[in-house]
Write a protein that binds this DNA or RNA. Structure first.
Ligand SMILES: NC(=O)c1ccc[n+]([C@@H]2O[C@H](COP(=O)([O-])OP(=O)(O)OC[C@H]3O[C@@H](n4cnc5c(N)ncnc54)[C@H](O)[C@@H]3O)[C@@H](O)[C@H]2O)c1
Ligand SMILES: NC(=O)c1ccc[n+]([C@@H]2O[C@H](COP(=O)([O-])OP(=O)(O)OC[C@H]3O[C@@H](n4cnc5c(N)ncnc54)[C@H](O)[C@@H]3O)[C@@H](O)[C@H]2O)c1
Lengths: 221, 221
DNA sequence: CGGTCCATGTGATTGTGAACACGAGAACGC
DNA sequence: GCGTTCTCGTGTTCACAATCACATGGACCG
């Protein structure tokens, strides 16, 4: 059959990054029993300006009502469809150290459509442990784990030295999206989406602006 | 005396976000005993292209040698100066749950010039505990903690409900930079820099592209 | 049923960052 | 000391994102 969703205009990357924020705000509104919302209200909740909200939402289609606003329920449905929330994408976390365990214990991923399907490590003292209901498995079994567990996304929470190797193994096992927490550059083949989260880097950016705004503070002992 | 550092051109935000990546790569090169590096080599290490590296570095000044490359040691010195690494900025982590503890146990922040100076929570069963050498203190004492500890940056690792309140308290205590991990929008007054890290949002972005590239996978049960 | 109101949706404009191409200039060999 | 070679530094061009401004069209009232 034909594709049921006609290929709308391509959605700009910057907009894609904001859609989940709107989605979160809309979900809160729905919980609160709010039926309709204006672009201005939504902008305030999401921390952006109203014009941007309207432009962003327009990429999804014309789901608002002029003079009134957007119906929360309907807009949320359309957004979830566009974001692909209709299907859950299983996640494997590689590296069960401080960070990996915190991530594994966090319930927020499953709630948002990303159930943690498997946990992996190489350390013999960690393999076999149960974390948040999942038994930690060995990296050597990654291919099986990913294949059988319908895993679509990999999270790298290993030390820097192992990151590239783990990424290669994830790709080899069929994972198409990777989120990397190790503070290093990893390369992936085309077709695989990689995003990185570097917490120390975030602090450095904050530090830069603080330094810039008050450079003389450095003088003070 | 006059300002020793003449106000060079304003550095674009996108460049600021990349400088720490270069810095990290340069540090690795220095460890490896490499004396000079070309923009192309550095680009490869940082995962960007050579032209961007040159442009970015040019905002710091002309520290390269044409036909040769950049002297690692000297460039690193200049970069650290620009990034303000000469002075350490103390960090307070608010919320000692899964994530907060993982952050507190992480040694990478101190190494990069951001020593964790204090840990804070409200839960009576957590206050008084020692995590990674720091005694967890109560949120009520935040103002004292920030003032006496020369804390300049606050990290919010509390549940969503508490995030805005904690941010307000941090600002009230004199913190000028905040890194927020709670998946919610928090507002801060002008003059305070806020950055957010939303891990579920990162997964949603990955999920979007995966959904887009293979939308029919949704059909498959 | 016509008029008014009001927030959306979107073309136009402005601003910012990425990519490109090439001139500038330092090292090195002859 | 001259020419060659190599890589930086940067002006220019192109692409994309933010912002603006207003026409559009549905809702609602009388
Ligand atoms: N903990 C934090 O808050 C934090 C913050 C920022 C960045 N990071 C980064 O996240 C990564 C993990 O940090 P952490 O504090 O959890 O470190 P950690 O040392 O506590 O844990 C690392 C885990 O990875 C496992 N491991 C090592 N090699 C592996 C491999 N090849 N395959 C699978 N597992 C492997 C180890 O056995 C260990 O359990 C590091 O790269 C760190 O720089 C952590
Ligand atoms: N754990 C993760 O991997 C993870 C991932 C993504 C996002 N987050 C977000 O990070 C935040 C923390 O997550 P978590 O898993 O550590 O939660 P958690 O429930 O384990 O810990 C929250 C901690 O904050 C403390 N707290 C509550 N109110 C406080 C207040 N007003 N002041 C100070 N402390 C307070 C609690 O006592 C608790 O110790 C949440 O907003 C969560 O959504 C966590």
């Amino acid at each position: 059959m034909m594709s049921s969703v006609p290929p709308r205009r391509r959605i700009p990357e910057a907009t894609v990054a904001r859609l989940p924020v709107y989605q979160r705000s809309l979900t809160e509104l729905r919980e609160g029993g709010v039926a309709t919302v204006s672009s201005e209200q939504l902008a305030d909740l999401a921390g952006v300006n109203a014009a941007k909200v309207r432009k962003d939402l327009s990429y999804l289609g014309s789901y608002g009502t002029r003079g009134v606003g957007y119906e929360v329920e309907y807009l949320l449905f359309q957004m979830n469809r566009e974001l692909g929330l209709s299907q859950d994408l299983g996640v494997v976390i590689v590296g069960m150290g401080n960070l990996g365990q915190a991530l594994a214990n966090y319930g927020g991923f499953g709630e948002r459509g990303f159930p943690v399907g498997a946990l992996v490590d190489t350390d013999a003292t960690k393999v076999g442990n149960v974390v948040h209901g999942h038994t930690v498995q060995h990296l050597d079994d990654l291919e099986d784990i990913v294949g059988k567990g319908r895993i679509r996304i990999g999270i790298i929470a290993t030390p820097v030295e192992a990151a590239q190797n783990v990424a290669d193994l994830l790709v080899g096992a069929g994972v198409e999206s990777i989120l990397n927490f190790a503070p290093t550059t990893v390369h992936v083949p085309e077709g695989v989406t990689l995003r990185k989260v570097d917490l120390a880097l975030e602090l450095q950016i904050l530090g830069f602006y603080q330094h810039r705004d008050a450079p003389d503070a450095a003088v003070e002992a």
